[in-house]
Simulated scan of single mutants.
Amino acid sequence: MKTMKAVARDDYCSPDALRLGDVDRPVAGEGEVLVRVHAAGLDHGVWHVTTGLPYVVRAAGFGLLRPKNRLLGMDVAGRVEAVGEGVTRFGVGDEVFGTCEGAFAEYACVRQDRLVPKPANITFEQAAATPGSAYAALQGLRGGGPVQPGAKVLVIGAGGGVGTFAVQLAKAFGAEVTGVCGTAKTDLVRSIGADEVVDHTREDFADGRRRYDLILDTGGNRSLSHLRRALTPRGTLVIVGGERKGRWMQGTDRQLRAMLLSPFVGQKLCALMLRESEEDLLFLGKTVEEGKVTPVVDRTYPLGELPEAIRYLRGGHPKGKVVITV
């Protein structure tokens, strides 16, 4: 059996305990593609799956007492190394990107319906930055139905991984976009097309001066009452994430409260239930290829420095995405 370098673990652990080692190299099965990984995207989900926190993550299918999958990483970009029986969409040498189980490795096996061709106008690093965060942005923007031209959209966390995609996609749909971010990210958010930028360290977007048809909260912890003050009477709030300390819910309680309250108010309050979609991935690839969206990569780390990359991400510093190179 051939081996490869990969980040693997047998138990839930601190990211600082992750190490690069040798594991068996996978073999493409029926309907699968073996990808030589060039880059892999990093997001907060990696921390959750590594640590097994909050405990609801374990109950969601990742393994109650220990991880079901030893390997980490989902967003992948690379070249097709081999194809399994029944694969008709790709051939050896094709450049692809998509999602898999075990992207933080030299090779990964991926179902062919979870891959699409990599746009020629972006790098492998940019391609790897795209799937998960762009899925979240796209599906979050659709939370209240298709974004209509002229709609007023507020993106909270506009300078982060999901936020940078959300701003650009909303503009591509013809919306009037306001981005909320910290001082260090205001120039970036303007540069990717936001019509207005709110520095949350200096002003409050819910001060009553303006209301929005759609608010996409990509990682704040503001109360529902605060967020609702900035919504139109029939507006939609989509909560994409939230990071708070806690071993059980860790931010998901806010999503649950939103869904419970929504039937009793005129506004639509919902939490994003992210799903993988070949149709959405093809759409995102086309949007990137047409230049309507450009993935923003803050910095890259080699595979052996995954713990350092996670620390940087968890510190809230990235302007856009952090990517692991292989």
Rank of each mutant, 00 (worst) to 15 (best):
R70S: 14
A175D: 10
L72Y: 13
L141Y: 11
A134M: 01
A172M: 13
K171R: 15
E106D: 13
M74V: 14
T183G: 14
V180D: 13
K185D: 12
G91H: 05
P117K: 15
A158D: 08
C100E: 02
T130I: 04
L72H: 13
A172S: 15
S191R: 12
V87N: 04
A184P: 03
A134E: 04
G157P: 05
A108I: 03
A134I: 05
V147S: 09
V177G: 07
D75I: 06
P149Y: 05
V155F: 09
G102Q: 05
V197E: 13
E176L: 15
V83A: 00
A172G: 13
A82V: 02
P146I: 00
F165D: 11
V80P: 02
G145T: 08
G174S: 12
A108P: 06
C109Q: 04
K152Q: 15
E81T: 07
G193S: 11
F104Q: 07
F124C: 08
A128T: 10
V80F: 00
R114M: 14
Q112I: 02
V180K: 09
G91L: 00
I192W: 06
L138P: 06
K185C: 08
P119W: 03
G78C: 03
D199T: 08
Q112V: 02
V197A: 12
F104H: 11
G93S: 03
G73L: 01
G98V: 02
A136C: 14
E106W: 01
S191V: 07
P119F: 04
A194N: 12
A77R: 03
F104E: 04
A129C: 08
A194K: 10
R89Q: 14
L141T: 10
A82T: 00
R142D: 15
A105I: 09
V83D: 00
G84K: 00
E176T: 15
E95V: 01
D187M: 11
G159T: 10
L115M: 10
P131F: 06
D187H: 14
V153K: 13
G160D: 11
G193R: 12
F97P: 03
K171D: 09
G102F: 02
V110F: 01
S133T: 15
E196K: 15
G78I: 01
G163R: 09
A82K: 02
T99Y: 03
L71S: 11
V116R: 10
L115A: 11
V110D: 05
E85I: 11
V177I: 11
E196Q: 14
P149L: 08
D94S: 08
N121K: 10
V155H: 08
G193P: 02
G161V: 11
T123R: 03
Q168T: 11
I192C: 07
A103L: 06
A136P: 04
R114S: 13
R142P: 07
Q126T: 03
Q139M: 12
G86N: 08
C109L: 07
G157I: 10
D75L: 06
K171W: 09
F97E: 06
L138R: 14
V162F: 07
K171P: 00
